[in-house]
């Protein structure tokens, strides 16, 4: 048994990843790094699905496939947006672009 852990440990891994993702999402000012953080969060969710799938049945695993596909799409669109963003504003720091302000 190379890798042996109970569900709490796996969930702790998942939550840690989620925490790091949230930390990155909230603290980074570069769009690309925020995308990294989003991917981390999605992976944390995926891990959760896989863990519970291992515990019960195959549903979560199948759902994780969809999530991966969706995440890939999201990354593609997000990076396209990043490029447009860069062309439009000359930088990729969303905090400086305050068009959404009141």
């Amino acid at each position: 048994m190379l890798l042996e852990a109970d569900v709490h440990a796996y969930l702790f891994l998942s939550f840690s990843l989620l925490a790091v993702g949230v930390y990155g999402l909230l603290s980074r000012r570069s769009v690309i790094r925020m995308l990294f953080a989003v991917e981390m969060i999605i992976n944390a969710a995926n891990l959760n699905l896989a863990i519970f799938s291992a515990q019960r049945n195959v549903d979560g695993e199948i759902f994780a496939f969809f999530t991966i596909g969706l995440a890939a799409l999201e990354a593609a669109v997000g990076l396209a947006i990043v490029i447009v963003f860069y062309k439009r504003f000359g930088e990729v720091i969303p905090s400086k672009i305050r068009n959404l302000r009141w």
Partner: peptide
Amino acid sequence: PEGKAVKAIVLSLLLLILGTFFSFLSAI
């Protein structure tokens, strides 16, 4: 990379603690 680290750290730690706490609290 710069950012508002304190808020982010607090929130993420909160998430981590909450998640772990509930994972132990629940009947999974």
